[in-house]
């Protein structure tokens, strides 16, 4: 028993020493990478078996041509988003994004774990004892997610290429759209209908960031943050914009009805987008739940279709 107690005290220290030693050994092989991330610097030895702990990381990993051995359950279309299913055939689901199953992760014997400080700060210590762990700050910054995954898996060149391709695509789309529209830039409201309220997503959200990249501007630029939850239809004038992108879970009847209630209200009818027929319904998985570069590209695909444009890909 005493040996056990001794180990309880010594184990964390031992673990740190061990990983340090391993790190040194790996370093001698000159193939490992030191990644600076939200929780500090971590030495990654190999990235054969990656476990991703948030949707954006999973998306980015797939985008770089790597199949993770473990992923967390998706927010909708459970357990894995349809657009990622084919690529994630061999991956095991290791639980919820908020509380991934540590034992399941350990059983997969990963050599790299990618998480987000926002969600996994508390378990960083334990994750690091399982495998080298790197963390993004938030979950909605798709550029950072891509860069972090690329750096940690040693695919920096592909990551760069991916990002440049995205920027080229958006630049092309922006050029074509601004030529097509009388007014540019357009203000766009990203509206998300829920069963009992409506919300607008702003700059500090995934779709907000993507639309800003493309060139749409916020209807309420003075308002920072992820978004606003609107309860009363009287607040409709505050979201007035040239174009509305509306997204919701179409399988939920109550949500559909709530959306119908909102758009039938006389105040909705006088807003710019509805008056000019610029209200578009878009895919809610791509727009708010994906959080990665693949999702952003799918958003751009949808936009191209809506505006009948063909940006280079």
């Amino acid at each position: 028993m005493s040996s056990f107690l001794k180990r309880c005290v010594e184990r964390p220290i031992l673990g740190v020493c061990l990983s340090f030693l391993l790190g040194l050994q790996g370093h001698a092989l000159a193939s490992n990478i030191v990644v600076s991330h939200a929780m500090g610097d971590t030495e990654v030895v190999s990235s054969q078996r990656v476990v991703t702990l948030y949707q954006g990381a999973t998306d980015s990993t797939v985008a770089l041509g790597i199949t993770p051995v473990g992923v967390v359950e998706s927010w909708a279309q459970k357990p894995i988003y349809h657009y990622l299913r084919d690529d994630l055939k061999g991956a095991e689901v290791v639980g919820l994004e908020t509380q991934p199953n540590l034992e399941a992760i350990a059983r997969l014997k990963p050599d790299l774990i990618i998480g987000a400080r926002l969600r996994h700060e508390k378990i960083y210590g334990q994750l690091s004892q399982i495998a080298p762990t790197v963390m993004a700050d938030t979950v909605y910054d798709f550029q950072r997610s891509l860069a972090l995954v690329a750096e940690a898996t040693g695919h920096q060149a592909e990551g760069e290429k991916r990002w440049q391709a995205w920027q080229a695509r958006t630049a092309d789309f922006r050029k074509q759209l601004s030529a097509q529209q009388k007014k540019w830039p357009l203000t766009a409201s990203i509206l998300n209908a829920r069963a009992d309220h409506m919300r607008i997503y702003l700059d500090e959200s995934f779709p907000g960031a993507v639309l800003r990249d493309i060139g749409f501007t916020s209807p309420i630029p003075e308002h920072k943050g992820w978004g606003i939850k609107l309860k009363t239809k009287e607040a409709l004038p505050s979201i007035n914009a040239d174009v509305f992108f509306v997204l919701f879970d179409q399988e939920d009847g109550a949500v559909q009805q709530n959306y119908d209630d909102w758009r039938q209200h006389p105040l909705w009818q006088v807003l710019k987008a509805p008056r000019n027929g610029q209200v578009y319904q878009v895919n809610f998985v791509n727009w708010i739940l994906s959080g990665g570069i693949l999702g952003a590209n799918l958003m751009l695909d949808e936009l191209s279709e809506l505006y009948h444009l063909t940006p280079a890909s």
Partner: peptide
Amino acid sequence: IAVSSTATSITAYIWLTGSVYGSDWH
């Protein structure tokens, strides 16, 4: 909780439910 983002409200909700998930020797 009502005014915070989905990410924060879920974390807060789990805290309010109570969980010993991720406890370590520390």
